[in-house]
């Protein structure tokens, strides 16, 4: 009973659960769905799960956010004592850029989705596959 409580009260456990859940659901959305738009949504979920894992890699217990506040300024020794308790800022900086890049990549994917819809009039991947195969055969026949 005691061990069970320990596991369930652990921050680590819940962060692992949510990141794995997001990654698995995102991969499910990318691989197993038929609608192209839902694949892009799955990509967003996958990126979110990976971002949580990256931020978790820099987290420390009883630590503070990596910002020197007014309460601990002016004395260099005070600043060093404060920064020693801070979380790792490097993964946070990487996730900061990764989120903006994720938005750009999703916008690019969505623009491709819009173009596909304008050309074929559907977003079902099975129907699209057949239509693209037909177009390929037509273009091959024209060359001959």
């Amino acid at each position: 009973m005691m061990i069970w409580d320990d596991i369930f009260l652990e921050v680590d456990f819940w962060i692992n659960i949510v990141s794995i859940a997001l990654i698995v659901i995102g991969i499910y959305g990318i691989v197993f769905s038929q609608h192209l738009l839902r694949m892009v949504f799955g990509l967003g979920l996958l990126e979110a799960g990976v971002n949580i894992l990256l931020v978790k890699a820099g987290y420390q217990k009883e630590a503070i956010a990596p910002i020197v506040t007014q309460a601990s300024d002016t004395m260099m020794s005070n600043i060093l004592a404060a920064t020693a308790q801070m979380v790792d800022p490097v993964p946070q900086a990487m996730v900061l850029t990764a989120i903006v890049i994720a938005a750009g990549v999703q916008a690019l994917a969505l623009s491709l989705v819009i173009r596909i819809y304008k050309k074929y009039g559907t977003l079902d991947s099975h129907v699209l596959f057949l239509a693209m195969e037909r177009d390929r055969h037509l273009s091959l026949n024209q060359k001959d």
Partner: peptide
């Protein structure tokens, strides 16, 4: 959790204020 495998974070935390003068280490 809490045992970061990366050592560069501690070095940056210790020297960032001296090096750059920014209060926000990120």
């Amino acid at each position: 959790l809490g045992q970061s495998p990366m050592l560069v974070g501690k070095l940056i935390n210790a020297s960032a204020v001296n090096d750059t003068g920014a209060a926000n280490l990120v």
